[in-house]
Amino acid sequence: MALEREKHLAERSLLTLSESNLLDLYRLMSLIRRFEDRVAEMYTRGKITGFCHLYAGEEAVAVGAIHALYDKDYVISTYREHGHCLAKGVAPQKVMAELFGKATGVSHGRGGSMHLFDTEARFMGGYAIVGGGLPLAAGLGLSIHYKEEPEVVCCFFGDGALPQGAFHETLNLCSLWKLPVIFICENNFYGMGTLTQRAICQQELYRFAEPYNIPGVRVDGMEVLEVYGAVLEAAARAREGVGPSLIEAVTYRFRGHSMSDPAEYRSKREERIWQERDPIKRFRRRLNERRVSGEVLDRVDREVDAVVEDAVRFADESAEPPISEVAKNVYVE
């Protein structure tokens, strides 16, 4: 049973990762949660507009996965990508400023919440077409393969992307050509408001690996070390040139699909069950087992609060992009 094995790997990681590594994981998850909470607040206050999809509840997936990569590896994601972008090391100031639409934003205010991108961090973009980023992941892998570079690509997408043709086209090709891509499906059970049972013929999403002859595993996406362990293995496999893997991380978004979605299609009971599996609270408990004190973690939270506060201030005080540059970068100049 895949799940048991992943749990075993997670236990091992808890023992083998250094305390500073474990604290890094905690810090990043806490950063994403607090960042997203503040984003929601800023949205309500009209500082952030447009379509905004929060990652709260899913932090363990991005943080666990990206921690298993090297800095030079690539990440490509979806429109719910604030978490991946922060986990990949992009400065919270630049992410928040982008959400505010400011010139100092990571995409210079041109992309907003759904189109974060940072070449320096090798964060190759959030893509606001469901499944649209998957073929690009194949292309990143193809370039790495051609240049004989050691990097891998970590490609995040939601359960909603599985019925898209792009998913199947991309998995077929990456398996066929053994491209160094790790596919991570964040299964949060809803494609906007439609339950996966009503959209996908197979509820064990990791089994979509089978027809493409690649390994598929399901991990508890609320358990950061399980995700970490699975991605570590998949990354090693990709780096060795053996090919891609599919990891299904079962998770849950604590908020609606977007800021304008009250998520009335979910029962309060269901939400409560998942709140009890809060990945950050769970990880706190695991860290306590490792004798990391609550005080230390509280201090991390306070540091993170200051970072987020600073990001909000930076975003708020930054200038709007100048109208004179509205057509800049439509073409290479």
């Binding site: 190759m124 073929p135 292309g139 193809l142 240049k147 090709l173």
Partner: peptide
């Protein structure tokens, strides 16, 4: 040679181009 998948052909091209290739 690729499979018959035009969306993928272009999408993979975009990804490769983003890393400096010229497909």
């Amino acid at each position: 040679d690729t499979p018959i998948a035009e969306s993928l052909i272009v999408g993979a091209g975009v990804g490769a181009a983003a890393l400096g290739m010229r497909p």
